[in-house]
Write a protein that binds this DNA or RNA. Structure first.
Lengths: 188, 188
DNA sequence: CCGAACTGGAACATTCGTGTTCCATAACGG
DNA sequence: CCGTTATGGAACACGAATGTTCCAGTTCGG
C-alpha cells in the first residue's frame, strides 16, 4: 500500500471532490453522489473512479477533516498562555475551518466511530482546560468535556449565523469568542 | 375544514405516530417511514392512513412542534423579572422539550419554511432581550438574534451531552443555564 | 350480538440512489 | 506526433423507500 505520490491532475481532482463533498454534505448530510459530483464540476463516473463506494468517499472526507483539524489545533499553540487565552486562539482557528465545522457538528458519528482520538487534540484540550482551572481563567465547575461541547456549539452557531445574517466574518468571530469567553469565565 | 374532534382511538394513534416521528427523526432526519411506524408500534399501512405522504407527516410534526414550543414559551412568562431571569426560565422550559430540541436544531428548515414566525415567540423574545439590555442583565453588545442562536446552540449541546455522558438531567440543565447566563452577561 | 371503525400484513408499481460497464473524446508528456 | 492518462456521457442491474390497493382480523359501541 505505497502512498504513491499521484500526478498533479489526479491530486487536484481528488481535492476538488473532497472539498465539494465537505461543502455539500455540511448543508445536507443525505446528499446524493450526483449532487457532490456536480458541485465538484466532475462527472459521477469520475467520482466513482476516485472513491469506489460512498463509504470510501466518507472515509476520505474524515481523513481530510482530521488533517485540517490537526493543523488548526497546532496553529492554536494550546500550550501557551492562560487557559482562556489558548481557548480564544483555538476558537479563531477552528472558526476558519468553515464548512467542515458544520459537517463535524452535524455528523458527530463521522469523527467518533473511526480512529479519531488518535492523538488529535483531545489530550491537549483537556490539558488546556486543566490549566485554565488552575490559573483561574476557566470556571472550575465546568468539566473539560462540557467546555468542549460549548466551544463546538458556539462555533456552529456562529457559522450558521454568518450564513443567514448580513454580518461580516470578523464580526461573527468576535461574537463567538466573546460568548465563549463569557461562558467559561469563573463566576464572580 | 371542520376541526372535527376525532375519536379517542384515532387521536391516540395519531399522537403516538407524531411522538415516534419526533424521537426517530431527531436521531436521524433521513429515517424511513418504516422505522417511524415500528417505533410507534404501528403498521406502515396505518401510518399512511393518518399521513398520506411523508410531507404530510413532516407537516404534522411541525404543527406539533410549534404547539409544544408555544406552550413552553408561555410557561416561561417572558415578561416577568429581569431579562436574564426570563432567559433563565426559558432555558429550563425549552430544555424539557427533549427530542424536539434536537429536531428543531438539526432541521432548521422545518420551522423556517412554513408559517413559523406567526406570533410564536420571536417578538416576545426580542422584547426580553431589549429589556435585558436596558436593565443591565444582558450584554448590550449582543444582538437579540445572536442571543437566540446562543440559547439554541447551548440547549442542543446540553441535550447531546446528556445522551453521551453519565450525568443527570438536572446537572446538565445547571451547566446549560450557567453557561448561557455567563455568555450573555455584560463584561465587567 | 352485530356492524362499523380501526388495524396491519402482503403484494404491487414506481421512483431514486447506487455501483458497474463500455465507449468516445480531450489533455498531457515524451 | 502518438500513446498514455484522465474524463464524462449512456446504459444497465440492483436495492431501498415510497405510495397504493386489497383483504382478513380485531376492537369498540350501540
Amino acid at each position: 500500500m505505497a502512498t504513491t505520490e499521484e500526478t498533479g491532475s489526479r491530486a487536484r481532482t481528488r481535492q476538488a471532490i473532497l472539498q465539494a463533498a465537505i461543502e455539500v454534505l455540511s448543508r445536507n448530510p443525505a446528499a446524493s453522489l450526483g449532487e457532490i459530483a456536480t458541485a465538484a464540476q466532475v462527472g459521477r463516473t469520475t467520482l466513482h473512479r476516485y472513491f469506489a463506494e460512498r463509504s470510501d468517499l466518507l472515509a476520505g472526507v474524515v481523513e481530510e477533516g482530521i488533517t485540517r483539524l490537526n493543523l488548526a489545533t497546532a496553529r492554536a499553540r494550546l500550550a501557551e498562555g492562560t487557559g482562556a487565552e489558548a481557548l480564544h486562539r483555538l476558537c479563531a482557528e477552528y472558526f476558519d475551518l468553515g464548512d467542515l465545522l458544520s459537517l463535524v457538528f452535524a455528523e458527530p458519528q463521522l469523527i467518533t466511530d473511526p480512529a479519531w482520538a488518535t492523538g488529535v487534540c483531545d489530550d491537549d484540550f483537556h490539558a488546556l482546560v486543566a490549566r485554565g482551572h488552575a490559573d483561574g481563567s476557566i470556571d472550575p465547575a465546568l468539566p473539560a468535556t462540557w467546555v468542549q461541547s460549548v466551544l463546538w456549539a458556539q462555533l456552529y452557531a456562529g457559522w450558521s449565523y454568518l450564513l443567514e445574517h448580513e454580518v461580516s466574518r470578523h464580526e461573527v468571530l468576535g461574537l463567538v469568542t466573546r460568548t465563549v469567553a463569557g461562558a467559561v469565565a469563573p463566576r464572580p
